[in-house]
Amino acid sequence: MNGVLAIYQKEMWHYFHSPIAYFMVSVFLLGTGYFFIYNIFFTGIAAMADTFQNMGILLLLVIPVMSMRLFASEYSDGTMELLQTLPLQSWQVVIAKYMGAVTMLLLMIAGTMIDLVPLYMFAEPETSTILAGYIGFALLGMACLAIGQLFSALTENQIVAALITVSVLLGFWFVGNMQSFQTSQTLAILVGYLSFSDHFGEFVQGLVRTEAVAFYFIVSAIALTLNASYLQWRR
C-alpha cells in the first residue's frame, strides 16, 4: 500500500511542478468562466445546464493533454524499468497513477465552483440539479482519464497518445448522434447506450440514474483493466 501511495505522491509532485498541468488547468478554468458568463447573459437563466454541456466538450480536449504523459513519458525516460521492478503489481501502478490524475480532475472541478458564487448571490438556482451536473461531470472526466491513461500506455509517444485519445473521446461523445439515422432499433439503443453525451445529458438535467453512474464506472474499469493487463503482457 505504501508503494501505491509513493507513486501517487510522485504523480502529484509532477502535476504541481509541470507547466503543462498549470497551463491546461488555466485553459479549462478560463474556458469554463467564459462559457458561464456567456450562457448567463445570453439566456438570463440562473442554471448551469448549458455551461455543463460546454464544459463536457472542453473536457474532451483537456483530458488527453493531461493523460498523455502518464505512461508514455515513463517509457521514453526509461523509468518504466524502475516501476515494473518495484514490489508492486501492475494494477497497483495503474491505480496509483489514475488516482493522481483523478485528484487533479477534482481540483479542476473545484476550481469551476467559483462560478457558483455569483449564481447564489444574485439568484436562487436549483442546488440538486447543479449537484447532479457536477457528479456527472466528475464521472465523465474519470472515464475519459481512464481511456487517456490506457492509450498513454500503448505508445511511447505522448503526442500520439493525445491524438488517439482525442479521437476516441470525440467518437464516444458524438456516437449518440447516429441514432437519428439509424434504421435498426437495436443498433439505435446500442449507440445511445455507448454515448458519453447522452448519459452526461441526464446528469445535467438533474437526473442521477444508477444506469448512467454504472456506465461511467464500467467504462473506467474496463480501460484500467486493459491498461494493467497490457503492462503485464508487455513483460
Binding site: 508503494g3 509513493a6 507513486i7 510522485k10 525516460d77 526509461g78 518504466m80 514490489p87
Partner: peptide, 27 residues
C-alpha cells in the same frame, strides 16, 4: 536492487526526493 542500462531517473525531482520516492515504493 536493479540498476538498468539507463538509470531510471525522474529529471524534475531533486536527488533526495527521488531517493525518498524509490525507498517508499520499495516498501
Amino acid at each position: 536492487g536493479y540498476l538498468p542500462e539507463h538509470p531510471p531517473l525522474y529529471d524534475t525531482l531533486d536527488v533526495s526526493t527521488y531517493l525518498r520516492f524509490v525507498a517508499k515504493a520499495k516498501g
